[in-house]
């Protein structure tokens, strides 16, 4: 179980708003998160990953406290080791597709498997500037998976994919998550694109 209880001030263009989220998210399943722009979906994922610290709150994962502002506990992102798919992909311009994965893991079989899932084997030696938007997005997803995280946090991970590629990719990911008993939190503006994933759906900021 992931127990979350956080309050974080958000500075958005329409003024100041508070992200106040309390919830218990099940492990080894997929949870889909939706909500309007500026509601704090990305901020919530970054708080769980340890990239942003809220003013108040706790994050407890499988009984381990990752964050407790009262007890001044705040594990670093390196110790939480969540897989994170950034909305802007956050790819490294100096690295090829293969180097992105090798930066995360030395397991060649796992790398080959990820390349195959993302249909990127033929582009392994390409740098991000020589990939399409959809290929960049798939690379961002498999890079996050390369560290074999127990928890993967995905921020709009399929927005740049065409319908057919999206169907194949989400189906492959769904099997992978299930086989690896992985917990996934997926933020999307378009809940229909997550139909391939069975799981709870929560909404924030509404």
């Amino acid at each position: 179980m992931i127990e979350i209880n956080i309050q974080k001030k958000l500075n958005i263009y329409s003024g100041e708003q508070v992200l106040d989220f309390t919830g218990q998210l099940p492990l080894n399943t997929i949870t889909k998160i939706s909500g309007p722009s500026g509601a704090g979906k990305t901020t919530l994922l970054k708080i769980i990953a340890g990239l942003i610290t809220p003013e108040n709150g706790r994050v407890i994962v499988e009984g381990t406290t990752w964050l407790d502002t009262e007890k001044k506990i705040n594990l670093s992102p390196q110790k939480r080791l969540t897989g994170f798919v950034f909305q802007d992909h956050a790819l490294f311009p100096n690295m090829t597709v293969l180097q992105h994965l090798q930066y995360a893991t030395n397991d060649k079989q796992w790398i080959n498997h990820l390349l195959s899932i993302a249909e990127m084997t033929a582009f392994a030696s390409n740098k991000p500037s020589h990939l399409s938007g959809g290929q960049q997005q798939r690379l961002a997803v498999i890079r996050a998976l390369a560290v074999r995280p127990k928890l993967i946090l995905m921020d709009e991970p399929f927005s740049a994919l065409d319908t057919k590629t999206k169907a194949r990719f989400t189906s492959a990911l769904s099997s992978l998550f299930s086989n690896m008993r992985m917990t996934a939190l997926i933020v999307s503006h378009n809940p229909q694109e997550l139909d391939a994933f069975a799981g709870e759906e929560i909404s924030i900021g509404e």
Binding site: G50, Q78, L81, F84, F86, L91, F92, R143, A144, V147
Partner: peptide, 8 residues
Amino acid sequence: QASYTMGK
């Protein structure tokens, strides 16, 4: 941030 989440 992406690098940190990869444990680097």
